[in-house]
Amino acid sequence: MVLIFVELDNGSIKKTSLEAVAYGAAVAKATGTTATALAIGTADAAELAKTGAYGATKILHANAAELANENAMAYASVLAAAVKNENAEVVILPKSGLCDAMGARAAAKLGASIVSGVTELPDVSNGFKVTRSIYTGKAFATVDVKGAVKILGIKKNAIEAVEGAGSATVEAFMPALNNGDFVAKVTGQEKASGELSLTEADIIVSGGRGMKGPDNWQPLLDLASALGAATGCSKPVSDLDWRPHHEHIGQTGIKVAPNLYIACGISGAIQHLAGVNSSKVIVAINKDPEAPFFKAADYGIVGDVFDILPRLTKAVKDAK
């Protein structure tokens, strides 16, 4: 049996989680078994049943007031209980901070193999071999996964999720919670509201030092809003506090894999490229024709970002 954990965001299943369901369903098909999803937190039955359209036959739903915060330790306990309950041999999680943390703790509870950053479907013809991203996307490695229970963290775009027609049966699942998982007290939260998440976004518009200062971001934000894109930045920009730290994309920041990445005034240092090299299509806009980003990009424009960005925004709006 293949068990897939799906992440909820305000009651909706995240897109990367639907990809995880499609991935899990494909693994189930290849190994002659079924796929069951697991969701933790508040969501209505119709939303949960949607996992069926991506190949899950059933979805377990754990919901309790104590699980309202994304508490990785409590979530790991629920996940491990579900694995035991369903006799799952393969567990799929989308790659995210929460999923890495809960997958790790569940792996230790279960004595399971855990492989993170998986980029393709496994080869099950002889054993269970997966391909994973290493060196921040600079290379890949095959891994022979040998544990009786195998936990895989899959990267965005590891599979193309195609919505089908099915509907999953929703089943309440509520194992006993451990007090030990609740020793930490959340004393506050600062969260930008209404922002598109960088790891989920299909399009990202990102700015570097070429934007020349925190007050010059409006043309970039305008293009992002016209495209329905999330916004990111390079390390120098977040170090200078021009943009918040959670927008920092790169080797020591967030690694992204959108369909389209538009870099504005970013030179393309190798550490930044490491965070964006999983993007499908990269556009670089820079006034320096020698900027290294042009070597990593699919489309390039040499020019002044403050001239080009408003024109691109207008072109997007005109094309609608």
């Binding site: 855990i114 490695a141 891994v143 022979d144 990593a296 699919d298 489309y299 691109l312």
Partner: peptide, 30 residues
């Protein structure tokens, strides 16, 4: 034995970057 590394691979080399003249920036969108 939980997981054993096998072969490494490098990503496929990136094709050449298509340059768009600044005065025709709008064509990028199409």
């Amino acid at each position: 034995d939980m997981a054993t590394l096998g072969q490494y691979t490098l990503p496929a080399p990136k094709g050449a970057c298509k340059m768009i003249p600044a005065d025709q920036a709008e064509t990028l969108i199409s």
